[in-house]
Amino acid sequence: MSAVCIQIVEGNPHLRSLLGWHLQQVGYSVYQSASLQQAKDVYLNRKPQLVVLDSDLSDGSGLEFCRWLRQQSQPFVLILSARSTESDIVAGLRAGADDYLTKPFGMQEFLARVEALTRRSRPMVAPAILDYGDLKIDLVQRRVHLKHELIDLTPQEFSLLYVLAQAGGLPLSRSELLRKAWPDAIDNHRTVDTHVLSLRKKIEVDPRQPNLIQTVRNVGYRFNTEVAGPGLVAASNPNPNHNHRAAMHSLS
């Protein structure tokens, strides 16, 4: 994964250099600007994810530059300012800043605020494989392997298993399973029982004494993560059900 790109727009050369050095030490890619004109050129060429912006620059207001940034591709903005009154902070936030740090400040606080903002810019990565030891559920290929053997599941059986596994061991009622794992509105609870029985025959060592998909009396069913040994293997964001409505429900 490439380093997060940060632009520092700061009129004080010593502070600008110091901030840049510390950011580079923790792995960020840093570009520095001393003036608004230079800042616009750097921004348009580099498109940083975060702009650290001095509120008062020699050739204009940092708040005006912040408003200009808001018309661009929406980077995060952290304003640094010697102006510390409530009205100054409110003005900075209303100009479009995501955070406001008053000078003087500690370097650890500065780095923590940068980390918090850049963390928000990272896309959430959904798991590509649910890995439960002997049982592996491939959400991209929609395949299930048990002890390295491919298990032939119907699309509906796969969706049911996926929804149960995603619940992390919590019991789900038959109504919840119908709502989350079936593409069409169905109100027949026996449909769930029939598919659970079929699924157990394919993935349980002894379907008559199931360990993976357990019945919860007066509730419904649960996926036994204690037996399965839960874990996730992260990869690129898959669409586990290929626009199947069950995918949207199961992730809600």
Results as ranks from 00 to 15, higher is better:
Ser2Arg: 05
Cys5His: 06
Gln7Thr: 04
Ile8Asn: 03
Gly11Tyr: 02
Leu19Lys: 05
His22Glu: 15
Gln24Ile: 00
Gln25Cys: 11
Gly27Gln: 05
Tyr28Gly: 06
Val30Tyr: 01
Leu36Phe: 02
Leu36Pro: 06
Lys40Pro: 03
Asp41Gly: 07
Leu44Met: 10
Arg46Ser: 03
Gln49Phe: 00
Val51Asp: 00
Ser55Tyr: 07
Ser55Gly: 07
Asp56Ser: 13
Ser58Pro: 08
Asp59Phe: 11
Gly62Ile: 02
Gly62Ser: 10
Arg70Tyr: 02
Gln74Asn: 15
Gln74Ser: 13
Phe76Ile: 04
Val77Leu: 10
Ile79Arg: 08
Ile79Met: 14
Leu80His: 03
Ala82Met: 06
Ala82Tyr: 01
Ser84Asp: 15
Thr85Pro: 01
Ile89Leu: 11
Val90His: 05
Val90Tyr: 01
Gly96Tyr: 12
Tyr100Thr: 03
Lys103Met: 08
Phe105Trp: 07
Gly106Leu: 09
Glu109Gly: 04
Ala116Cys: 11
Ala116Leu: 12
Ala116Asp: 13
Arg119Thr: 12
Arg122Cys: 06
Met124Tyr: 14
Ile129Phe: 02
Asp134Cys: 10
Val140Gln: 09
Arg143Gln: 13
Val144Cys: 10
His148Tyr: 03
Leu150Asn: 03
Phe158Asp: 12
Leu161Cys: 07
Leu172Tyr: 02
Leu172Lys: 13
Glu176Gly: 00
Leu178His: 00
Leu178Pro: 04
Lys180Trp: 06
Ala185Trp: 09
Asp187Pro: 00
Asp187Trp: 04
Arg190Ile: 08
Thr191Tyr: 09
Thr191Pro: 02
Val192Met: 00
Thr194Pro: 00
Ser198His: 12
Ser198Phe: 06
Arg200Val: 01
Asp206Phe: 08
Arg208Leu: 14
Pro210Glu: 14
Gly220Asn: 02
Tyr221Ile: 04
Thr225His: 09
Pro230Tyr: 03
Pro230Gln: 07
Leu232Asp: 00
Ala234Met: 14
Ala235Asn: 15
Asn237Pro: 05
Asn237Ala: 07
Pro240Arg: 07
His242Gln: 15
Asn243Cys: 10
His244Tyr: 12
His249Ile: 00
Ser252Cys: 07
